[in-house]
């Protein structure tokens, strides 16, 4: 399974490397495009020193952790987004005749290695914020855990989005609101959002576990919404539950496809 993924991804990488200049240009541009989000944060903090009680470095820490996870998924999983195109063009049939999971084939479909630029950009911001913050070294272990958790949550979201597209082939953009919307939502301290929204993305769609809850632990801050302290460590559980749900939805989506045809 994994080897099939990397074989597919490597083939696309080689295809992209055939034009080295274009490859380099796209990597750099990916970095710049992703940089606009940081630019927005920097411009905001050029006008204020704190946003809903969070400093610039703290906000960048939240941005960095969420975006490393998000951009990793953007690179390795988000290709699933093209499923409605494949269904409409009838090319999904050709994936069903291969002896490999359709999820693996879709996730590796037209893999774009140049998206590594975005991951790097997020990692740079994260590195800067960690150096700018005076973090308790005993709590740093949480950072890799939260990035992994976040990556699993985003991957599950993209899978769900893909599964939904089997049904909503004409309205696939709806799923962008959930995938890219989640990426946008987790860039900022949840303290800026309304109480109802935060409750929804804590107990409903578990986006609070991408970075907000664990970051409160790393930054040693109280939750402005008074969520119980143990919630800060529940990320992996939430991610697992969502991943199982997504896997189930994906199967349902494929079954729907095979029972309607193209």
């Amino acid at each position: 399974m994994v080897s099939a993924y990397f074989r597919l991804a490597w083939t696309w990488t080689r295809a992209a490397m055939a034009y080295p200049a274009s490859f380099a240009l796209m990597s750099v541009l990916g970095l710049i495009v992703a940089g606009t989000d940081v630019a927005v944060i920097l411009i905001i903090f050029a006008n204020t020193t704190s946003l809903a009680g969070f400093s610039r470095a703290e906000t960048l820490f939240l941005y960095g952790t969420a975006n490393v996870a998000f951009c990793l998924c953007d690179m390795f999983v988000s290709n699933i987004d093209r499923i409605s195109q494949h269904v409409k063009a009838g090319t999904f049939d050709t994936m069903l005749i291969r002896p490999v999971s359709t999820w693996i084939q879709m996730a590796a479909d037209r893999f774009l290695p140049t998206r590594i630029g975005r991951v790097l950009q997020a990692a740079l911001v994260l590195g800067y914020s960690i150096s700018a913050l005076d973090l308790d070294s005993g709590r740093l272990w949480m950072i890799p855990v939260m990035i992994t958790t976040g990556a699993v949550i985003f991957a599950a979201l993209w899978t769900l989005a893909g599964a939904v597209q089997f049904v909503l082939t004409d309205a696939s953009e709806v799923t962008n609101a959930f995938t890219y919307g989640s990426g946008q939502l987790t860039q900022y301290p949840f303290a800026i959002y309304g109480r109802e929204l935060v409750r929804g993305v804590t107990y409903g769609l578990p986006l609070a576990f991408v970075n907000w809850q664990p970051a409160l632990y790393v930054l040693d801050r109280d939750d402005p919404f008074g969520t119980p302290g143990f919630m800060r460590f529940l990320g992996p559980v939430a991610a697992l539950v969502l991943a199982l749900l997504a896997g189930f939805a994906w199967r349902l989506g494929i079954r729907h496809y095979r029972s309607t045809g193209s």
Binding site: S3, A4, R7, L8, T11, R14, A15, G90, T91, D93, T94, I97, R98, P99, V100, R110
Partner: peptide
């Protein structure tokens, strides 16, 4: 409709198939 990878050289498509079908 082709089952080959549109943007890849034929040889690369075959090589991929070798791996996918082990």
């Amino acid at each position: 409709r082709t089952t080959l990878w549109w943007d890849l050289p034929l040889r690369d498509s075959f090589e991929l198939i070798r791996h996918l079908y082990k």
